[in-house]
Amino acid sequence: MGDLNQAMIEKYRTNFLKEVEANVEEGEWVKMCMQCGVCSGSCPLGKFWDHPPQELFMMIRAGKRDEVLSSDSMWMCTSCYNCVVRCPRELPITHIMHGLAHYAKRLGLVPESQPTAAFAQMFWDNLMQKGRVNELKLGLKLYFMNGFGDGIKVALKHQKIGMGMLKTGRMSPMEAFGGHAVKDLKGFQSMIKKAQELEDQRIAEHGA
């Protein structure tokens, strides 16, 4: 995807705001931000963000493409919608955050080992295999994300919940071996394929 990134840089050159408007979901709203800072003040996780939404919007206008797209900030959004409710200009800030994250992912600019991004990828890969989420596999993979030792520790910590779920039939250990699929797995996969084609086409027309 590095090519796409290069193509975008060349296409929009000076105007990152235009690039965001054309490529990011709800990106056309960014120009309407009036920099009041209510979003940043409202964000419950704001203090953990490198750049709160107001600042991201300012950086977009200032043409700070690399800093914005490779930022960790928009990945921190938990979709609480506090900012959307409070924005006096009624910007869909939450959606713009996800839009930015999505666009950064498309361009291959996500910071390495960004946990939200890593989990999203894990979830997607898991889903694609059988057309449904295999909770046991997803859970285990998540436990062992940071190595074997750490995984054992987390697993032991959650032992009680796991046993309870087994007992009540909420989770089958058999799922660890392949696991069951949706009824029409082929159909599901071709549906996803078609969606991907449509998306690529859209990007070819508007984006790159």
Partner: peptide
């Protein structure tokens, strides 16, 4: 002011 923003005037503090 919104009109200017809509026309993509960049306002930098």
């Amino acid at each position: 002011y919104r009109s200017g923003q809509q026309a993509q005037v960049t306002f930098s503090k």
